[in-house]
């Protein structure tokens, strides 16, 4: 059977193509690895939420944080300078104001006796 001379040419060129084995240059390797920030470390370094972001996320983001901040400031203010209505309301709930002292009234602050003694 006769072989097609065009096939012979083609087979010869295919063989020459298969012999092409270029060595990747160091530059190409560097280009390929330059952007290699692995997905996991990228998540940590770039997209990873910090403590603040995680807390914010847990609480529902900025709108929720704003409300929380406003409520906190208001609470502190009411504690520092309670309006009369709040004092009255507290009194109505708790009865008369009760003062609790951690120390006996005539205890260690009663230094006069010691000085005199």
């Amino acid at each position: 059977m006769m072989t097609d001379p065009n096939d012979d040419m083609l087979d010869d060129i295919f063989a020459q193509a298969r012999a092409v084995t270029p060595d990747p240059s160091a530059d190409l390797m560097a280009r390929i690895l330059a952007d290699v920030v692995s997905p996991a470390s990228e998540a940590t370094l770039v997209a990873g939420p910090g403590l603040w972001a995680r807390l914010s996320g847990m609480l529902g983001g900025w709108p929720a944080l704003g409300s929380l901040l406003a409520a906190t400031v208001a609470g502190i203010w009411i504690g520092v300078a309670p309006p009369a209505t709040v004092e009255d309301f507290a009194a109505s709930l708790l009865g008369d104001a009760v003062t609790v002292s951690l120390f006996a009234q005539d205890g260690i602050f009663d230094l006069g006796d010691l000085a005199d003694g």
Binding site: A17, R18, V20, T21, P22, D23, P24, L28, M29, I32, L33, V36, V37, S38, P39, A40, S41, T44
Partner: peptide, 26 residues
């Protein structure tokens, strides 16, 4: 590599880049 081992990418590139480049060049 997906779990954060960047050295694994280098190993894969070393293993496959010559073949990938040769295929494209041919």
């Amino acid at each position: 590599f997906a779990n954060g081992d960047a050295a694994a990418a280098r190993d894969l590139a070393t293993r496959y880049l010559p073949r990938v480049l040769a295929q494209a060049m041919r």
